[in-house]
């Protein structure tokens, strides 16, 4: 079953995303959490992660720098990454896609919007 890495500097947002995923009935083995892009890279390297959900604006290393570093590393570079962020301009969405993000969801989102977005990457029980 898949392991999901959630990278967001808000612990509340990380928990909220986990709750919605659990309540949506997706098959999940484990959630791994990181508070910024730098910690996210370490967790991605040391765990067998199947899907990454990543905020954009974070201290130490932003989400977009995380995506660029992950895709440039060669290692784990094929893990799908969905950005979940308040950055909602077309320019930012395009930048994320060009940097290697697979999906994009803007905050605030409804539980249904998150479920629909993650349905492309996770199986329901």
């Amino acid at each position: 079953m898949p392991k999901v890495l959630i990278i967001d500097d808000s612990a509340v947002m990380r928990k909220m995303i986990q709750r919605i995923i659990q309540q949506s009935g997706f098959l999940i083995d484990e959630f791994v959490e990181a508070g910024d892009g730098k910690e996210g890279l370490e967790k991605a390297a040391s765990s067998n992660i199947d899907l990454i959900l990543c905020d954009w604006n974070m201290p130490n290393m932003t989400g977009i720098d995380f995506v660029k570093a992950l895709r440039g590393s060669g290692l784990k570079s094929n893990i799908p990454v969905v950005m979940i962020t308040t950055e909602s301009s077309e320019t930012r969405i395009e930048e994320a896609k060009n940097s290697g993000a697979n999906g994009y969801l803007t905050k605030p989102f409804t539980p249904d919007q998150l479920k629909t977005k993650l349905g492309n990457y996770l199986l329901v029980k």
Partner: peptide
């Protein structure tokens, strides 16, 4: 956790305002 939630709420409001302002 409560402070974190208020920070995230403030961040989401400001983030959405920023997108409109930046345009």
């Amino acid at each position: 956790e409560v402070k974190d939630a208020i920070g995230e709420v403030s961040n989401m409001i400001a983030g959405n305002v920023k997108t409109k302002l930046a345009a």
